[in-house]
Amino acid sequence: MGKRTIQNPIGKKDSRFVEMVKSQQFIAAAAMIVLYFVFWIAAPTFRGVNVITQILNSSYYLAFLGIGVTFVIATGGIDLSLGTVMGCAALLGGRLYSVNGLPMIVALLVTVLIAVVFSAINGYLIAFIRLPAFVATLGTQMMASGFGQIISNLEKTNWPARASEPGGAFKNAFQITISGEGKNVNIPTGLILLLIIVVIMSVILTKTKLGRYILSLGSNYEATRLSGINVRKYQFYAYIINGVFVGLAAIAYAAIYTSITAGFGAGQETNAIAGAVIGGTSLAGGIASIWGSLFGVVMMSVLKAGLPKIGLQSQWQLFLTGIIILVAVIIDVRRNKASN
């Protein structure tokens, strides 16, 4: 948006098509596709259905994290705790099922609940106690990390490995595996689920009072408050939405990868935040795009799948993610500066 108006200071409107092409979410989608084909050309082993499955599999939980954190960033906040909270939720839920033998539905609900509780703590500290989001979520990040280790006793936790196992049916929401003639075929049902959720959340962000107020308070907190809007309440809601998605991300991860190690989740916030920022969500708040965040996190998944194929291991992914975040933030900051 910023970009468009700089080029047209008198406010002349671009055509819808030009406007779309110039938007950050479109650039993110293009970058995602370009990156995919770069790897496709560079590494023969990258070309195949398996890699696409791999990309999709890591996109589910990252996309949920990305969608949730988009609401938080839209308020001008940040959530550094979402990675460890996801880990903690997956560990606790998994243990309730595998160790305590509770029904799967209880395990799933508790998984979401624990994430919402942590987010409610974040939201309360930030919206009502007025702590800086960075500080508050740094605190809960460590709390969640420690809590996960306490409850899991540093042991690995297993969720059902197959959909056919008792309690494993929820896995079908993400992937249906059809076995036959020595070969497994995976149907990515999660993709459909994800697209439905993206559409719903996009509508919530842009077409409902909740979304409009979240964007407004992120754009100018005081002016929104002086417009008679209960800014604290809506800021708090943004963190709750985030919490629900962190819980869903934990479930998505459990469904795909089955086993949860004790330190799982730490660092995933960088992928989610990077995805959102690449997709055009401004760290200054007020500007956000759910579709952009989706493309952004899928790009992170492509990177994750592609780098090993050209001989660069996860340490490289970490290094490059850092660079990508910096570049995306520099673009974001320049955009804001230009508009001031």
């Binding site: 100018n220 002016a223 002086l226 809007i229 007020g286």
Partner: peptide, 18 residues
Amino acid sequence: RRYGVLVEKNVAENTVLP
């Protein structure tokens, strides 16, 4: 600019906010 309008939003969004 600080307390009145949301500068990055358009006229319509600002007008209907409350």
